[in-house]
Design a binder for these strands. Sequence first.
DNA 1: GCACGATTGGTAATCGTTTCCTGCAGGAGG
DNA 2: CCTCCTGCAGGAAACGATTACCAATCGTGC
Lengths: 372, 372
Amino acid sequence: MNHQAVDSAAKTSKGRRGKSRRGAEDRPSTITDVAREAGVSVATVSRTLAGNYPVSEETRARVMAAVKSLHYVVNVHAKALSGRVAGPVALVIKDITGPSLAHVAAGVEQEAASLGRLSLVCATHDDSARENDLVQLMREQHAAAVVLVGSAAPDESYQRRMSEYARALDAAGSRLVLVGRPAPAPGLPVTVVDYDNRGGAFQATSHLLASGHRSVLFLGGEVGLNSPDERRAGYLDALRAHGVALRAEALDTQGPYTRVSGYARTRDALRNGVEFTAVFAASDMVALGALAALREAGRSVPDDVSVVGFDDVPFATDLTPALTTIRVPYEELGRTAVRLALTRRDAMSDDDRVVLGTQLIIRKSVRRLAWQ
Amino acid sequence: MNHQAVDSAAKTSKGRRGKSRRGAEDRPSTITDVAREAGVSVATVSRTLAGNYPVSEETRARVMAAVKSLHYVVNVHAKALSGRVAGPVALVIKDITGPSLAHVAAGVEQEAASLGRLSLVCATHDDSARENDLVQLMREQHAAAVVLVGSAAPDESYQRRMSEYARALDAAGSRLVLVGRPAPAPGLPVTVVDYDNRGGAFQATSHLLASGHRSVLFLGGEVGLNSPDERRAGYLDALRAHGVALRAEALDTQGPYTRVSGYARTRDALRNGVEFTAVFAASDMVALGALAALREAGRSVPDDVSVVGFDDVPFATDLTPALTTIRVPYEELGRTAVRLALTRRDAMSDDDRVVLGTQLIIRKSVRRLAWQ
DNA sequence: GCACGATTGGTAATCGTTTCCTGCAGGAGG
DNA sequence: CCTCCTGCAGGAAACGATTACCAATCGTGC
């Protein structure tokens, strides 16, 4: 009766366009543009694209044509404001280039992608102020999960910061995940994904002891940090379990997980006449340095000295000799972190914790000593 | 006149839906909550936080107190919808764990962070359909720049895809950056950051030739891909420049940039009696395989055979012998990509291109042959 | 011939911020 | 005393999408 067709037709011309009189629109096109182009309402366009509402075949075709011709893509910000949008996963890491950290990052990215999330990655370069800023930023970004990776000193200040992060993120509907980091006080809304540092170090040291070695030079990490401390505990566990006393203080060294530190400590031990037939380097980077120092000193590996590392970096197999080491499932750590954080049943308790195992990879850097 | 106070008070109860009956507000607090808590209008809160408008000291204090007590952070989505927000930088890469790619990623992240941007990183695993999706996604995300890394075959389909990406991103106010990839047709809104593959290969080969080697086994990459092809061209350039003919077809091999391919090709050359006194591996990964095959065959490096690699991966110096190779400024590549894309003067022409140099790093894997 | 259900499409509210435009004091200047 | 700034605060209109709610059309069965 009433001529709706007239209204509908009128709309085509109604579209405001006198406003910007330039021919070429440089502003990304909006759903309104698409609606005008297709001669339908914005609601119809939205429903056509969402596909959750019946739309006639002909209308759909017109809408799709308009979308294509205008190169339309939805504006996530607008979409996030109304309908819900899957927030990204944030990875906060000391440095992406470390061989093991890169694998954690890959795991995180992979799992996030498979759950339909994007990954934001940020490097802190060990600056805890930046870590603070980053957590704040991620809250603004509505990240679904914030994954913090890398060992830390579990002191007062660390505990306080983690509690604060956990609560702040939880309040924003996000989830804090700690990978390879000390767990904060229980009861906090935190997911902890860790691996068995102590067990791995135990395996490594036991392998040496079982091969007949009795004096094992331990090239540990920085004291105070959780992961190095646990690896040292594993070393001592093994000594105890095999009834071997720590021969000399000088066998138990500590320092950063770097190539140069491993080199320097091994060289010094050699110079100072410390006696040892084996080296357990608590990280492959340190083992690299030890290998270099031994080679330089004319000690053959494994004929004179056996070496075991930790981490199983990708090129461990390409060293001379191929390095026997402890494999840490870094990629799986990253995947687990994301999976746990995103698919957690609400029924579960606030905090949850997973510890992944490690594995001894036997290559060519350990020699079995003749029975003595 | 009209009692606005009533409206404002009414909002308090209007707030959240009865859906979640827990007492604690689980919805992140909004600027409205802050305004209510501080007893001011949302406009005032916004202005206080932006600091771009005069606000009385007392009001500022009240607002700040409310912000702190509610743990308020702005909602980027809402902010992006009205005032402008700095879009993230997107990095689209085959795989983050590759030693050189990780460095590009680090460079991108670093420069993005220093320009106040977040970095989105996505792995394609060499799937061009996923690359398509990702570019689309980044357009939705309003990324300021989209950095595509890694060599590709510069065929018809590649050219078409890149042109499409460039135009689509440009229309959305974003910028396509190609790192280490073939440049598409000129005139497109694209930034290309590349390094001197051909020159590097020339340096590497020349170093061997200048050391007296005349039969250089070339372990190239996959034919068709831009970077391998250029490295091969550099190898041939050097041969020509030194007046050395390619002795045998068998010296010019091709295959993937992997350890196993390098191993297999070297082993086969050895088995087939191909004569060579030096190897130029077009990637350090391939060099790794070559080193293993030579060791296995009892050929000493560098005494029997000299080896030069390409990429200067971090552990090249830890191989036995330390690998002479070509350093590629991967991190700088990443930094440059972001810097160029974000700080580009609009006055400049549509497309721009930068080529970074490479450097020969001499270590221990090349021996100078006695004058013959 | 007409009411009714099944389809389709439109209107407007909503999400959280920013910002333009007004409004209201109170002090300065006429 | 009136006007005019000026400093500070509030209301409301964007921004671009989703979606609840409502209106209109078209067969169809009575």
